[in-house]
């Protein structure tokens, strides 16, 4: 049975994530980031930032609420029991700091099948309150052959 591609191009409602200091600290601790920019407000300000700086990979935190609807969309049709995270790409703009409000919009980029594997690719575009694009993500999920 070939994979349905009717969901390609589909867009999901944008989500807004308010970036908090303690969430940045919690995330930085979990991934082993020791740079004071992620922990010490005074150090961040001394370096010219408005507040604590989020590590670039913090994008997974502010993108997560926007990704759920696509991953669980029956029209996309991902079989979670067989899904693995195949690949990931991020391109970053200005750094995100505590106090930012990040809007993320997700769309289905492609759905394809190759050698019994199904590839589901989503794109996320995240912008801050000033309208700067802070992160564009390409999320590739692979569903192993049924």
């Amino acid at each position: 049975m070939s994979v349905s591609t009717t969901a390609v191009g589909k867009r999901y409602p944008p989500t807004v994530y308010a970036v908090g200091r303690e969430k940045i600290r919690e995330y930085a601790m979990a991934v082993g980031e020791t740079n004071p920019l992620h922990h010490d407000v005074e150090a961040a300000r001394a370096a010219g930032y408005a507040d604590l700086v989020a590590p670039p990979m913090f994008c997974v935190v502010y993108c997560a609420p926007a990704l759920g609807p696509g991953l669980f969309d029956p029209e996309v049709g991902i079989d979670f029991a067989r899904m693995v995270h195949g690949g990931q790409q991020f391109r970053w703009g200005p750094l995100v700091v505590a106090g930012d409000e990040i809007t993320t919009a997700v769309s289905v980029t492609s759905i394809s099948e190759d050698g019994g594997r199904r590839y589901f690719v989503f794109e996320s575009v995240s912008t801050n309150q000033a309208g700067d694009t802070v992160c564009v993500g390409t999320w590739t999920n692979i569903v192993r052959g049924a």
């Binding site: 740079n35 920019l37 992620h38 700086v53 989020a54 590590p55 670039p56 693995v84 995270h85 195949g86 690949g87 990931q88 790409q89 991020f90 391109r91 970053w92 750094l95 390409t138």
Partner: peptide, 16 residues
Amino acid sequence: EAAGGPHALKALEVQF
């Protein structure tokens, strides 16, 4: 860490 801070990382692409 190699490049001197988070500002330096412009893009990262990986395969798991």
